[in-house]
Design a protein around this nucleic acid. Sequence first.
DNA 1: CCTGTGTGTTAAAACGTTTTAACAAGCCGT
DNA 2: ACGGCTTGTTAAAACGTTTTAACACACAGG
Lengths: 341, 341
Amino acid sequence: MTSPQNSPVKRPTVVDVAQAAGVSPGTVSNALSGKRKVDAETRKRIEVAIRELGYRPNQAARQMRTGQTKTIAIFSSMPPAVAAGPSKLGFLMEIAASAAVAAMARNTALILVPPIETPEDTLKSVAMDGALVVEPEEDDPVLTRLIRSGIPTVCIGRPSGAGIPYVDLDYPAIADLLIRHLFEVGATRFPLIVGASRRASNLAFRARYRAAAANADMPETVLEVPEAEAEAGAAEAVTALLAAGQDFDGVLVPTDAMATGVMRALRDGGRAVPDQVRVVTRYDGVRAQTETPALTSVDLKLEAVAALATQKLVELIVGQAGPEPVPCPTPTLITRPSTKP
Amino acid sequence: MTSPQNSPVKRPTVVDVAQAAGVSPGTVSNALSGKRKVDAETRKRIEVAIRELGYRPNQAARQMRTGQTKTIAIFSSMPPAVAAGPSKLGFLMEIAASAAVAAMARNTALILVPPIETPEDTLKSVAMDGALVVEPEEDDPVLTRLIRSGIPTVCIGRPSGAGIPYVDLDYPAIADLLIRHLFEVGATRFPLIVGASRRASNLAFRARYRAAAANADMPETVLEVPEAEAEAGAAEAVTALLAAGQDFDGVLVPTDAMATGVMRALRDGGRAVPDQVRVVTRYDGVRAQTETPALTSVDLKLEAVAALATQKLVELIVGQAGPEPVPCPTPTLITRPSTKP
DNA sequence: CCTGTGTGTTAAAACGTTTTAACAAGCCGT
DNA sequence: ACGGCTTGTTAAAACGTTTTAACACACAGG
């Protein structure tokens, strides 16, 4: 109960604790970190002093000295137009939530970096010693900037560059899962509606679709839609298809926002789902679930993926792991009314 | 192209920049922050030196000197059982996403603190100069700890203590909206299924329900369900109600997880929604949207709420604002098949 | 008695900024 | 020629930790 200085609050520091415990600051540090041996009796004194004063270590000072911020950031490389809207809550946030708990379990904080146009500014203003990049695009600007800055980075979804560690989402397997299912429920010819960017998932879907079409003697119809106008673009594409009189009994449309557009176009065009046309999409998010009828999609095991990526990242940071990719959990199908036979 | 030291990387510091530009470190700092005047020509030299060396300020050092971390944290006080599962992606993440962009716009990072049992550890290990608390409970442990630590805090949803700034979610208005709607679509007697905790929203729903019941001469039936077992508990409660032969033509069930349970119990009990029973819930999340039939709910304007709270928080941190609450946007009804007349 | 070996502690340096107080130079009005 | 004012710059201190090198001490083996 000694009268404090008149300064506002003056949080106690390690030297206050040292003084109270009758030791030197260095010893307090050692007691806290356990890096060097300190006498049991001394440690006791220090602990009571800490409790007494309500000492909390100053993270900034600690960070500055050690160079470790104990912080990782999560970036979405999707254009804001894609990440925004109803999907915003989906993919990215689902991963972020899981990554946050995985990080916290390793006593690391996760900071949420919203989709932005200017990665440079963000990289300057925010301190982190590692980064997660969700679904990097080919030559992703955020990703390249990160690795050029020497910041340890783990991708979720395979990146275009080599030597960057990642947790694969195994897009080919996902594509096969959906394509096989379409055939199984009786579809015989279906177009692929896909994003125009060179994002890895788009590439995989195109490749697997081509292979499957060739294999089944099905004519290939690949419609590329700019990702920024996903929903409207997909609707337009399907409407054009209908107008052209092309017949099809299924649609493979990975991006959920585009799936919404497809469903609208089908409704407007008087096609019944699933009786006349079966529709499947990739991400099992709000959109897939709330469509009428609800859409068959894929359980990507995002929670596990996020946890693995986070673990890999912290190992990378402390130098316990190399840049080799992490095997990913196998995705499974979720069948819904949109493909009911 | 001078050969660098053999040390790993050695990021350039402010003194390197100063040396390259032929000035003192202090001047570089001034040029960067713009706090003091520096000659236009000198500033130019500094800027090119910065670009040349690829200098990025060390945030930790900056933080330590200024005491500002430029970081805020967002806490959910919900028990993990509630925050987990499908709802995890909903309420909390929707707010977090919006808060992140609002924070970033003010050049502040948002760190995501997952629901935890041990707030003390987190508060110790993570540096922040402000906090958002989502839906604080009465005498919320996280909240009390935060204010005791003197960390500026803004709540989303009214806290129990006084003097803590918050953005109201206006639970009474929300409750009234739903209750009025139930009456309007022809319901004459309906129970309230509500969380057992003393969370502000629960209290408000109880109060408004009582008032409305008294006013309409409707018998009161309030069923309290422990929040940890929301879905199962609510299902059980409704099943018991049916077994007891109590007749009702509507259900008011604010928590979406409980709504799922209610719908299941009604289905199992052979009651048709909306023909025999109308159901309304509060949060328009995945669950409300994917129920069959989809549930009438409320647009809480979470995006705006989160932005307001974040703005208030940064103002609070820099001392530009007092602890008075922030007026909140008015919620609106979203009518869905579950109350179709 | 001397040398070596732990053990536990400490004083001081270092981390990279920002801020403070001082200062030099130029200009103005007497 | 001198004091006062402005403008731009700087040297040095400060922020709170961790780490390094040194030290004091006890104790063992010769």
